[in-house]
Amino acid sequence: MSDNVIDARGLLKLYGEARVVDAIDLSIRRGEIFGLLGPNGAGKTTTILMMLGLTEISGGSVNVLGFNPVRQPLEVKRRVGYLPDAVGFYDNLTARENLTYTARLLDIPRRETDARIMDALQSVDLAEVADKRVATYSRGMRQRLGIAEIVMKKAEVAILDEPTSGLDPHATFELLEMIRRLKRAGVAVLLSSHLLDRVQSVCDRVALFNKGQIALMGTVVELANQVLGAGHPLLIEASGKDIAGTLGGIAGVRQVVPAGEGAWRVTADHDVRAEVAHRIVAAGGSLTKLSDLQPSLEEVYTRYFQEARHAA
């Protein structure tokens, strides 16, 4: 048995002539956080719905925890937690009543229900408002209640569709922390998003969706190497004579590009920060900034689509 919790092979979804999901291959490993990224309408949600057996599959196959969502949707849905985009709860019921309904649907033994619901609500900091009607909840609280549902379910895989969309920065931070907590509990997390920088911070691996296809897949660093080229990018701000020349003379530096007034971007084969500082100071210049640029997903994304457009 492989370590993959989700395996999709040639997964295809047609709406009439349109190939909404175009024969994608995708596998998600046990215990990782996997990000499905891409613009709206790229096929992320459809892919998720096919994995859950909530929409028909037009071709290919998908296997979730050893089950086929087309034939064994109940088995899949028993083990997979799903937080839909802009999740809804019954407003006239309290958080506890909403989760009780889910617990009944899941057939959780009645004497365990209360404890599991309280534990789950505690883990998302909603225990104090457990008996308030959901109508009074903010959007962030609803999302957290959705996470609580997954925790209560003791799901092996959590699928979160745009979990952070529409949340303020603080709520987003809290939610991402809860997603990390899910991972620590051994849950494999699949999340989709169009907000790249947020997702970058939690994802182990990502897949970049474009027009129903997976354009790129791997860790953020791998993608950066693939698209932006290998190396350590640095941002340097300094004043002095011929800084660019000095930088260019350092062993291992491949490229020096001006990045505005008194600033340069350097790409090197290895970490050359110490050498850069030393040389500039030795040449009589003053170094005001020296930062290691983490390859940003945003950059990868933009560059990739630029290149894709040029190639076309």
């Binding site: 949707p73 849905k77 802009a86 999740v87 019954y90 649907l105 899941l106 959705g146």
Partner: peptide, 14 residues
């Protein structure tokens, strides 16, 4: 309209 349908249908029931 309450957006509860997909959440409920993601529980084990047809």
């Amino acid at each position: 309209n309450r957006r509860t349908l997909s959440r409920v249908l993601s529980q084990p029931l047809y």
